[in-house]
Amino acid sequence: MKEFERKQLLERIEREGATVGADIPDEITVQGEEIELQSFVFEIKRRETIPRGERERVDRAKKNLRRERLQRKQRIEDGDVSYDRGEELANAIIGIDRALNALEQLGPANIEQEQRAQEAADKKRWMKFLQKALGHEDADSGTGRAGRGR
């Protein structure tokens, strides 16, 4: 592989948005073990929350995927592979990144509940602001223009 080709591949895998439109590989060998990556990611993402036992499995999978990504990137960096093989490695890395992004978006149930509570509080503050700005009576304080002069 030529130096400029190696640099192109490395730039491609580090590019912001490289995973946009990329597919998660159906199967991938990670740390010597064949994994049905796409079905694993979709199975985990299908659930609203991840049970504690599954959380450990997901964390282990993310760790192994990160390690595999690094090893594949190092093979490109070393330049001891053909351009075609480097292209295959780069495509696999982008697929791994896509899977990692999907798995990283999953959080424990309490974080999801906190987010919902935060959104509800934001909506409530917004509604109070709008009521005051529009001059409607504020239900909590009993003040406001709508109740005056009657």
Rank of each mutant, 00 (worst) to 15 (best):
M1T: 01
M1L: 06
E3A: 10
F4P: 12
F4W: 10
R6V: 10
R6G: 13
R6S: 14
Q8W: 00
L9T: 00
L9P: 05
I13V: 15
E14H: 08
E14L: 02
E16P: 00
G17F: 03
T19G: 10
G21R: 10
G21T: 05
P25L: 04
D26A: 10
V30W: 06
Q31H: 15
G32W: 07
E36P: 05
K45F: 08
R47Q: 09
E48S: 11
T49E: 11
T49L: 05
G53M: 01
V58S: 02
D59E: 13
A61Y: 05
K62D: 01
K63L: 07
R66P: 06
L70M: 08
R72V: 14
R72T: 13
K73A: 15
K73G: 04
K73C: 09
K73F: 03
K73D: 05
I76K: 03
E77V: 12
V81P: 06
Y83D: 12
D84S: 02
D84L: 03
G86K: 01
E87Q: 09
E88F: 04
L89E: 12
A92L: 05
D97R: 04
R98W: 01
Q105W: 02
Q105D: 14
L106P: 06
P108L: 01
P108Y: 10
A109K: 04
N110C: 06
I111C: 03
E112C: 07
E112I: 11
Q115I: 12
A117N: 15
Q118H: 13
D122W: 03
K123M: 10
K123H: 12
W126C: 11
L130H: 03
A133F: 08
L134I: 07
H136R: 13
D138F: 02
D138E: 05
D138Q: 07
D140H: 00
S141D: 09
G142Y: 00
T143V: 06
T143I: 07
R145E: 15
R150T: 02
